[in-house]
Design a protein around this nucleic acid. Structure first.
Length: 152
DNA sequence: GCCAACGTTGGC
DNA sequence: GCCAACGTTGGC
């Protein structure tokens, strides 16, 4: 059963255009257990992803991607020079896991957070719209995914 | 740059 | 196990 997800990225760090260019990217750097668990245990190759730009002028969904690999340990946790280094994580029992994300397409226009808020009735309970939500990887229902596509 | 919300850490 | 302190996220 195909599932759907929303994954946030700061466009200054890694935008939908950057993903388009490289085609596929290991989603490294997630250091939140809830977000990790989604990648580690729930995501399956081929799952759909809404690519979301955060911390920018117009936050919102800017394109589509897909889960392109099974989960594997995030290599950056073992790199002492990395911002994402985690001294407490041991290679025989990695703490942080990720999946590769593959580019599908860029939206013609951004479906903004404002627009999605305005569609709260149609979208129903949506983790992205919950107050104070800071999760960078979150589940989306098939109905929500479909509805957001109609807003493009 | 501000700040509310929230997760994590560590002392007790 | 509680909770204050602290760090981070992310909208504005």
């Amino acid at each position: 059963m195909k599932q759907y997800w929303l994954m946030k990225s700061e466009p200054d760090e890694f935008s939908i255009d950057a993903l388009c260019k490289v085609g596929r990217e290991p989603w490294s750097g997630v250091r939140n257990y809830q977000a990790r668990n989604f990648m580690m245990t729930d995501m399956k190759v081929g799952d759909g992803i809404l690519f979301y730009h955060s911390n920018c002028t117009v936050p919102g969904v800017t394109g589509l991607a897909e889960v392109a690999s099974p989960a594997y340990p995030d290599p950056t946790q073992f790199l002492p020079r990395s911002d994402y280094f985690d001294a407490a994580s041991k290679p025989d029992q990695p703490r942080w896991w990720l999946v590769d994300v593959g580019f599908k397409r860029k939206f013609k226009r951004t479906v903004s957070l404002d627009e999605m808020r305005a569609q709260a009735d149609a979208l129903g309970d949506f983790a992205l719209l919950r107050r104070g939500n800071r999760l960078s990887v979150l589940p989306v229902t098939a109905a929500q995914y479909k509805h957001i596509l109609t807003l493009e």
